[in-house]
Design a protein around this nucleic acid. Sequence first.
DNA 1: AAATGTTAGATGTCTGACATCTTACAAATA
DNA 2: TATTTGTAAGATGTCAGACATCTAACATTT
Lengths: 236, 236
Amino acid sequence: MARKSLVGVVADELLDRIIAGEFPPGSSVPGELELSAKHEVSRMTVREAMKTLEAQRILSVERGRGTFVNPLNRWASLEAVLRAASEGVNDASAAIQLIELRRMLETGACELAASRISDADIGILHGYVAAMRKAHDSDDLPGFVEADLAFHDVILRASENVFVAVLFEPLHRVLEKRRTETSKFRDIQEHAIGHHQAIAEALESRDAARSRSAMDAHMQQTLDDLKSYVLEAKPA
Amino acid sequence: MARKSLVGVVADELLDRIIAGEFPPGSSVPGELELSAKHEVSRMTVREAMKTLEAQRILSVERGRGTFVNPLNRWASLEAVLRAASEGVNDASAAIQLIELRRMLETGACELAASRISDADIGILHGYVAAMRKAHDSDDLPGFVEADLAFHDVILRASENVFVAVLFEPLHRVLEKRRTETSKFRDIQEHAIGHHQAIAEALESRDAARSRSAMDAHMQQTLDDLKSYVLEAKPA
DNA sequence: AAATGTTAGATGTCTGACATCTTACAAATA
DNA sequence: TATTTGTAAGATGTCAGACATCTAACATTT
């Protein structure tokens, strides 16, 4: 990532203050002049920062009145909501809810993909499973995670549903970091390889119910792994 | 909605030109100076418009090089993607994909809600079913749609998953308009009442599989209704 | 041929000003 | 007194022009 511009810094800091509860939903944030003084930037820079938060429906700007914080359920940015949710006491709850969401999208996409996936993509899936196996044998963690994510990406695309892909994209970045954490354990890697193999075979059979079920089992395993390996080990 | 500011107008027009294919993904949009001349606004206004599109990941601004259009699957704004998808020849395909997405989220949320919903919310659900029935009897279309949407909202909240609610919010506005169209037919209204009744009863039994199945049947019916009543009647 | 300097064009930021909208409050009116 | 109107403060919307900094391409020097 390129280092952040002043606009990005101001937007980030303001979002942090909002998440910290300094400006609760419905309340107004300080005026542009006040913020430009506090952050030692020009009013224009503050305005552009506000615009980015407004575009994500985090703020509502009302001419002549001020700028107000929207309730969290109106925020259009999954990442911002994630930051807000992780800030609370229960990081675990956020992680679990994230997997629940992922489960909905991935099992649904997998079900759709069963009747739409091409033979070529089936081959690619098997290729990624082989790559995971190879990375597992040679202790190549980044390679393992990369093949894992690519596998799921193929299914997402094969579902031929634009909206699912769009909604999943912000999840992708978040999951990538967490996946690197969980995939450190060799046990988890072995679990994952088996499930991916089963998913590829289910899709190959073009059986929608079986494909959905295979992906669902994978998600359940991921949830269990997260609970037993990561959350247990990290006390508050 | 408040009438749009100049920034909003410029952003909209630029997005329209992007969607129309004038600036395909990967290509660059005209420079800030050129755009400010074409739209007869100042450069700052153009910049703020760009910022809103950048915040939605529609554009990537690179200092010293220019501003570039992102591929559609990286756009973070469901509404913008919807606009782009509806612009094409196949409005039908977009409508179907939208229901597919809705199906994933709602069936998933309903499954989760089964074990989490409160007795009070169960009562509220039955109340909305009654409201739908009453609106149906008195030919109150807006009332019918309102009760319908409220019913689904209760389940969304009862799933106790923040992220699902956030992802569903932009869908809500889009669906509201389409729902008013489809619910015009009395046959569809009767279908819907039966399904909602079944969903409420399934949730009351706290049976996750049954609840999911009931919601899934409702989504299937919605898809069928859309195909036979709306899409058939509206040729390109 | 490689390293270096130059330059054009793009975005990033600043300063200061004026316009317009909302709200609150005071003054004029019935 | 109650209502209306006028005024002013504070907020966002927009503009103009300037300078800084980054990138890429080209020319120059080594």
